[in-house]
């Protein structure tokens, strides 16, 4: 029996090394895995809060209306009712935070209007669109259209609908 054990002895060290390695791994694992891991599922629960902490750039329509309700009323009554303020004016969360220090610039009308209203057969047919080069003859859109309520109520629009 003793002789038998002696002949097995050389295997004990490698076996010991493997088992010790496994033990060390389990200890490290217990120490290193983030505390919130597994809180809601197989991930770091704290990641949710981390992602929520990101600051916003767009304040949101409701925020704009808090102060600018006069413009908001005009817009809500017109053709641009579904267009939120920042869709044209850009991200203004900073402005909402400190209106005096962050004064927004007026958008460049020449680029802005075309993005939506330039004619493209891929656009839905109900959507008002024009070939801008022919439509305005180089005039700025705002010469005729009031951006917050762009519809021009004249006798002309009863015929062609161009003035929408």
């Amino acid at each position: 029996m003793r002789r038998f054990l002696q002949d097995w002895a050389h295997l004990l060290l490698p076996a010991g090394v493997l088992i010790a390695g496994l033990g060390v791994f389990l200890v490290i694992r217990a120490a290193v895995v983030p505390k919130s891991f597994g809180e809601y599922g197989h991930y770091r629960g704290a990641a949710l809060e981390m992602i929520r902490q990101k600051p916003v750039s767009y304040a949101g329509q409701d925020m704009c209306v808090m102060c600018h309700d006069d413009q908001a009323k005009v817009k809500a009554a017109g053709k641009h009712a579904t267009v939120h303020c920042e869709a044209c004016h850009g991200p203004l969360a900073k402005h909402a935070e400190d209106p005096a220090a962050n004064v927004p610039k007026l958008p460049d009308v020449a680029v802005l209007c075309k993005r939506c209203h330039e004619q493209d057969p891929a656009k839905p047919s109900w959507f008002p669109q024009v070939v801008t080069a022919e439509h305005s003859g180089g005039m700025k859109c705002t010469e005729c259209h009031q951006p917050h309520s762009p519809h021009i109520a004249t006798e002309a629009d009863a015929g062609s609908g161009r003035g929408k």
């Binding site: 002789r3 002949d7 097995w8 050389h10 295997l11 060290l13």
Partner: peptide, 18 residues
């Protein structure tokens, strides 16, 4: 060697099996 110089036939027979 991991601390063992035992290469007796009996030890080798065990090695063979393992």
């Amino acid at each position: 060697t991991l601390g063992s110089m035992n290469v007796s036939p009996a030890a080798r027979a065990i090695d063979e099996k393992v």
